[in-house]
Design a protein around this nucleic acid. Structure first.
Ligand code: ZN
Ligand code: ZN
Ligand code: ZN
Ligand code: ZN
Lengths: 137, 137
DNA sequence: GTCTTCATGAGAATGATTATCGATCACAAC
DNA sequence: GTTGTGATCGATAATCATTCTCATGAAGAC
């Protein structure tokens, strides 16, 4: 299959981004990461943040989602395999979801319609317990 | 609740876009619609296409998805209620999917984690029977 | 240390989407 | 049919996330 990562050098910038993601609990956009690294004193170029996140995503080191307004957000998940997310629309808190049932459903539906090589996109959005209570006004 | 559409005037442009979508079977981006309307002789401004699609989406007249590279694509679906899609990655052919099971699953998972006011995003992508056969090369 | 090659970053370029704002048009009332 | 008025249009400028360029810096191998 030849899917070896050629050779990824461990640079100061790549390390900084990796550690940032390790501590941030929820999804962050490239712009947010860039700004926060700057504020933290790390000198990292915006282009580098984009490039690094992209390569991390390819390598499966981070997960990606699209925000409502189309921006890409990244997160280092603790679950290693394929999974989905339950994201708080208000504070961003994220729960990782594994659902064999959904995987099976997707495969079945696809087969019924004659589709092959199927992938899926499944994300849940809502208000977490804390935010839901607050917004009760 | 007051969700009345104030007053949507039937203009030449709005009609053209509506009919275009009625005949196109799959998802199309605003840019594609604009270009194809132009080629068909309809004089419609790009800004108008964007505005119209947005208002149609709000009114539930069309469904929206994000393409892999972040563009919004629109489609007039035959199913009236909430549903999902199974899209061919190669030719764009689209099947509408209704899945009570998934709706229930989403609600359950959300509740288990204390989330409320939950919505979800569920789309399947694959190769349709025709495209899958062709690419067997 | 030297060398080869990849990574970086400031700034320009791209490209989709949105905002402007005067000109036009839909349509309800006469 | 005319008219009044406010919604709609559209050419174009403005936004803004993301990508590209390319000269310079730094990893890693020997
Ligand atoms: Zn929350
Ligand atoms: Zn899955
Ligand atoms: Zn196909
Ligand atoms: Zn659903």
């Amino acid at each position: 299959m030849m899917t070896e990562h050629p050779q990824r050098r461990t640079t100061r910038q790549r390390t900084a981004i990796g550690e940032f993601l390790a501590h941030a609990g929820d999804f962050r956009t490239a712009q947010q990461i860039h700004e926060q690294l700057r504020m933290g004193g790390d000198r990292v170029g915006l282009a580098t943040v984009y490039r690094t996140l992209q390569s991390m995503a390819e390598g499966g080191e981070v997960d990606t989602v699209r925000t409502a307004d189309g921006e890409s957000a990244y997160r280092r998940c603790t679950t290693s395999g394929h999974h989905h997310h339950l994201v708080c629309r208000s504070c961003g808190r994220t729960e990782e979801i594994m659902a064999k049932a959904v995987e099976a459903w997707a495969a079945t539906i696809a087969a019924q319609h004659g589709f092959t090589d199927v992938t899926h996109d499944v994300e849940l959005y809502g208000l977490c317990a804390r935010c839901g209570a607050t917004s009760t006004r």
